[in-house]
Design a protein around this nucleic acid. Sequence first.
RNA 1: GAGGGCGUAGCUCAGUCGGUAGAGCAACGGCCUUUUAAGCCGUGGGUCCAGGGUUCGAGUCCCUGCGCCCUCACCA
Length: 555
Amino acid sequence: MSDQITDRKAKLDKIRALGVDPYGTRFPNVTSHADIRAAAEGLRIEAGQISAEPAACCRAAGRIVLYRDIGSLIFMTVRDRSGELQFGLSKKMLLEATEGRRDEGTKGSNAARVARFSTLDFRNTLDEGTRSVEPVPRRAGGEDAGLGAPAPQDPTVPWKVAKLLDLGDIVGVAGRLGRTKTGELTLWAEQFSLLSKAVRPPPEKYHGLTDIEARYRRRYVDLAANPVSQRVFILRARIIDHIRDVLRRRAFIEVETPVLQPIYGGAAARPFLTHHNTLDQDLYLRISPELYLKRCLVGGLERVYEFARCFRNEGISPRHNPEFTMLELYQAYGDYHDMMDLTEEIVSGAARDLIGSMTIPFGDQEIDYTPPWPRRKYADLFAEHVGFPLTDMAKVRERARQLLEQKATTLDERKADDEIVVNALFEHYVERHLVNPTFVLDYPASLCPLTKRHPQDPSVALRFELFISGMEIGNAYSELNDPAVQHETFSRQLRGEEGETMAVMDEDYVEALECGLPPAGGLGLGIDRLVMLLTGSPSIRDVILFPLQRPQALA
RNA sequence: GAGGGCGUAGCUCAGUCGGUAGAGCAACGGCCUUUUAAGCCGUGGGUCCAGGGUUCGAGUCCCUGCGCCCUCACCA
């Protein structure tokens, strides 16, 4: 039992004894701190002054991150999602303002008071939708926190409540902008409302929350205490917005396909198994949305995409989370070259528009996203980095045996087909060298059961994977649309890792192809990994709000 | 799954050779109308991750377990 929590709960009682609800309600017409700062530029307030301009009246809210009580004057640094702003509370000023309102309480309407504090008239760029441009009159006895309270009030109450504030509390203020004698922009409160009392103390104000486990388990504390963490998730949202913009311009439509699937497919991975009680049916959480999205193309939707949460029952690492988000899209009448162009536009555009730089550091690397990116053939890269051609199976298998001896792989080449062994070497020797964005194209066909074959060389599939910083970021095909070939590749079980196959027979999918799948390019992009790269986050858990953690008894 | 590292106050961290558990921030009491991680005076706060062992004595050494991080394997 923490003393600090006890102390703070005691303050709750004191605040309630003053007739104030420590958990406020609506606080309308708030201007973001960033917008207040921008507007204050135009007011030209001198140091040590409080502006008399009507435009200097505004309302703001946020969480107290610093609190400096210097007697009859309190300064607090308050954070909203746009930034920080200093609120100033003066005992004398609050008292006079509260007395003034009590006197006019019998004649002035609540709406009029709200209007008085809504005069900052500029477009609120961050806040459209929550800030009403027109003051919104509430019904008599409105619900606005603090402001809606019955007018007659002991004028000393606001100051008494202010003295009971703690770091982490959420407050709202209505007042006038000024500058202190050191020039710091300050919102001097004529009214203030306690909107939410925090009964748990925030982390240390300078270092924030640094314990990695605590940041994942209690992400709300991490977000509140560490603006850099907020920035990652804001950027993640903007990256997704950016992708939607690109696809919208190209007439793609966003669709949703099943997460619960009776047959899993579209990738090689172990699935999660679940069960529907009423149907008494086993179901898999999807490992990929691919087969459903291509059914949409059969139906004529032509250009579809999905931000698909996928689930793979595999190991966890800084680059792997059991659930992750993949953008998949399909474009009728296109091929994998179109997908390369689109991928370049999406990723390099995000770097340019959202990060503002075509080179972004990742770990100790500096990644250059400037298009066009190299487009290298799988076989060429293999020969270059492994040292002999991938057709030399004697050498390939010999090298694979060496890797197994060194425990650098678990693949036993004696139990695996040629292409599987080749690919194991590729993954071990080649991928780590692909630091700047690189398209690897023309994979061995048997690794790609859903991909169209090269017209001149049926051993090669029209597929590329995109690598950045040694990570696979994207994967795209010229989609296989011949139902007979599809049926055959589904039937042919490639020998690889135990319990895994490259594809599972999906009769309904083959039947869909028999109805006619237009030739198409398809693309999968790993959103989490893309966000890692663009935000410089070394672990996938840094870009997933609530990463899976083993359960732990709460302290 | 294998190997390595870490776990001390609400938070950030010290803790020597095995000898009474420490600091800053936060908290509590007091002072302060221009602070900027405010300052000054005073005070309280510990299942040293858990369990076992060695020892006169364990935060420290050993074993087991739990959690997290890293590397490797699997995987995208």
